[in-house]
Design a protein around this nucleic acid. Structure first.
Length: 491
RNA sequence: CGGGGUGUAGCGCAGUCCGGUUAGCGCACCUGGUUUGGGACCAGGGGGUCGCAGGUUCGAAUCCUGCCACCCCGACCA
């Protein structure tokens, strides 16, 4: 039993907050809205990074780095873009401090005011497109496929660890293409990369769709997204991929000489996922005992806990498990042998459950006598004792099995929590009693979307890419609708 | 910025209404010992500008005034 972790059924949001802290993932920092990502939490991010980075490289992208600071004037070059981000920017106005007159600290030196204020990037389209202008002259320079791993700042009013913080880590891909079609293909390609990552690595089933005009990225022509469902029935936008059209090319005058000898504006995309994914990972799989991590992203995949009566026994156990450890490491399975004598086995069991380590081995005096080892899995708590020679193959099997099992579990949950509403009454009823994704007809207007949001707090998460056309009438206005869209209350 | 709440040891809290020894409890921490198959036990120990600044009083964590910070609920958002 976990000590002091609230139950999901009683207070989901307290459960989440406590879990993040107790599992050593992150904590609040002295600055409101920004967090310290602790080593265990950062290890998960590193695993995400390395899997995603490989997928980006495999699709032809290379990494670069663009500056944190953006001249204020850049932001205003694309009208929708500035409109979207102006309300949440941190601004650098000065470059020097000095001792205060009363000697009680330092103050901003009024003589050190910047000619032009700098914006701490909320995203990097502007600085990147101003750079691309110099990099692109001819169709031979295209496509330009670049990604950067960076931090960004969006001054949020209300923040939550991982889900919404003022500063967060992410990757942002920015590409330039010679044709509209190519850019659109890229947008979808990266959306698919995200969906594949979510499902294969995070064991998180996602919906792929396109955002309504209202929810679209500021400056994009189309915004595509992957949407996941959390255990409390709320949706989480897990990644976005934008088709930028020629908006930024026009704003920053990025033209290229085409094959016919004329000049064209390039076509752009941008796409990103952030440390928010860690929040989604936690909320999708974990239970009242702590984290449940998919083996592919778990910082420690296997932990070995010795159960001992004296130091000579520890020595014997260490010798027995040594070949297992070696064998696992050769197979790139991360394993930790916890031989600390400062904590009892029961304490360690609870601790590693809290931290979501997928597989736990335990070896004690009985095992030494019998040549066996106990293997326990985190997702189902099943335990079994088997001959020590079978340990490694069993572990490999379990890691695969756990990865699949939690994906299946999450998929079943998502399916059970996806409903359809044919009237507004039914819609409201479903939202109140069940939550989850609700498919319903919508007349396509922002006004209706907004009014539904005001009344119910539910938003249109996306229009599914594979949703078939189907004539119907809007649940709110009764006007004709061509297809159902997906609603949910969201993070 | 509106509504509500909280500031006391690293964390969680009691004490505040009704002022009065050296400010207390649980967890965590340190030392020694016994323990170790699901969060051990015993003994000892360290750790506090009671959010800050004034004021009332013989005496303030406690009463008064002002300020600050943080949390929760709303308006904005990956």
């Amino acid at each position: 039993m976990s000590k002091g972790l609230p139950k999901r059924s009683e207070d989901y949001s307290a459960w989440y907050n406590e879990l993040v802290k107790k599992a050593d993932l992150a904590e609040n920092s002295p600055v409101r809205g920004s967090m310290v990502i602790k080593p265990y939490g950062f290890s998960i991010w590193e695993k995400m990074q390395s899997a995603l980075d490989k997928m980006f490289k495999d699709t032809g992208h290379t990494n670069a780095y663009f500056p944190l600071f953006i001249p204020k004037s850049y932001l205003s070059k694309e009208a929708d873009h500035v409109e979207g981000f102006a309300k949440e920017c941190a601004i650098v106005t000065h470059y020097r401090l000095k001792n205060s007159e009363d000697g009680r600290g330092v103050i901003v030196d009024p003589d050190a005011k910047l000619e032009e204020e700098l914006i701490v990037r909320p995203t990097s389209e502007t600085v990147i497109w101003s750079t691309y202008r110099n990099w692109i002259q001819s169709y031979r320079d295209l496509p330009l496929l670049i990604n950067q791993w960076a931090n960004v700042v969006r001054w949020e009013m209300r923040t939550r660890l991982f889900l919404r913080t003022a500063e967060f880590l992410w990757q942002e891909g920015h590409t330039a293409h010679e044709s509209k079609q190519e850019a659109e293909e890229e947008t979808i390609r990266m959306l698919n990369v995200y969906a594949e990552f979510a499902e294969n690595f995070m064991a998180l089933p996602v919906l792929k769709g396109i955002k309504t005009e209202n929810e679209r990225f500021a400056g994009a022509v189309d915004t595509y997204c992957i949407e996941a469902l959390m255990q409390d029935g709320k949706a989480l936008q897990a990644g976005t991929s934008h088709f930028l059209g020629q908006n930024f090319a026009k704003a920053f005058d990025v033209k290229f000489a085409n094959k016919e000898g004329g000049m064209d504006f390039v076509w752009g995309t941008s796409w990103g996922v952030s440390t928010r994914l860690i929040g989604g990972l936690i909320m999708a799989h974990s239970d009242d005992n702590g984290l449940v991590l998919p083996p592919k992203l778990a910082p420690i995949q296997v932990v070995i806990v010795p159960i001992i009566k004296g130091s000579d026994q520890l020595q014997q156990i260490a010798e027995k498990v040594e070949p297992i450890i070696k064998n696992l490491r050769e197979k790139n399975i991360t394993v930790k042998f916890d031989d600390r004598d400062t904590h009892k086995p029961g304490w360690k069991f609870a601790e590693y459950e809290l931290k979501g380590v997928p597989v736990r081995l335990a070896m004690g005096p009985r095992d030494l006598e019998n040549g066996t080892i106990e293997i326990a899995r985190r997702d189902t708590f099943e335990k079994q004792v088997l001959p020590i020679e079978e340990a490694v193959s069993k572990i490999e099997e379990l890691l695969k099995d756990i990865q699949e099992n939690i994906f299946t579990k999450a998929s079943q949950f998502r399916n059970e929590m996806t409903s359809e509403a044919s009237s507004f009454e039914e819609f409201e009823e479903l939202l109140e009693t069940k939550g989850g994704f609700i498919k319903a007809h919508w007349d396509g207007t922002t006004e209706t979307e907004e009014r539904i949001k005001d009344k119910t707090k539910a938003t249109i998460r996306c229009i599914l890419l594979d949703e078939p056309e189907e004539n119907g009438s809007c649940i709110f206005s009764g006007k004709p609708s061509k297809r159902k869209v997906v609603f949910a209350r969201a993070y």
